[in-house]
Simulated assay, not measured.
Amino acid sequence: MEKAEIIAIVVVTVIAAAELFCLFICSKLQNKSYPLCVALPVNSQDKELPQRLEYIASLIEEGSTFIGTVLLINIDGTDEQIQLCRDFCAHYHAMELTTAAELENKLRMSL
Rank of each mutant, 00 (worst) to 15 (best):
P41N: 04
L71Y: 07
I6R: 15
T69P: 02
C37Y: 01
P50W: 02
C22H: 08
S27E: 15
D76T: 05
T69L: 11
S44C: 05
F66P: 03
T69C: 08
A16G: 12
F88Q: 07
C37E: 12
M109K: 13
R86N: 14
A101S: 10
T78F: 00
S58I: 03
E5Q: 15
L29P: 01
D87K: 15
V11W: 05
I6S: 03
A39S: 12
A90K: 12
Q45A: 05
Y55V: 05
A100E: 15
A57F: 03
T65I: 00
L29E: 09
A8R: 15
G68L: 03
T98E: 01
S110F: 04
D46A: 11
L72F: 03
E19S: 14
Y92P: 09
I56G: 00
K47A: 08
A18Q: 14
C85M: 07
F24D: 11
I9Y: 06
K3G: 04
I6F: 02
R86H: 13
L53C: 08
S44P: 01
S110I: 02
L84V: 02
A90W: 03
D87E: 13
H93R: 13
T69Q: 14
D46Q: 12
T98I: 02
Y34L: 12
F24A: 08
N31V: 06
A57Y: 04
K106A: 09
E96Y: 06
L53A: 06
N43D: 14
I25Y: 14
M1D: 13
L49N: 07
I9K: 13
L23K: 15
K28H: 10
E54S: 10
N105P: 00
A4E: 15
L97G: 05
L59F: 02
I82V: 14
A101Y: 11
K47Y: 05
A8W: 07
Y34Q: 12
I73K: 03
E96K: 15
L107N: 09
G77P: 08
A39M: 13
Y55Q: 10
A17C: 14
I6H: 08
L29R: 15
T65L: 00
V11H: 09
L53F: 04
Y92G: 07
I25E: 13
Q45S: 11
I75M: 05
K32A: 08
A94K: 04
H91S: 12
T78N: 05
A17L: 09
V14A: 15
C89D: 07
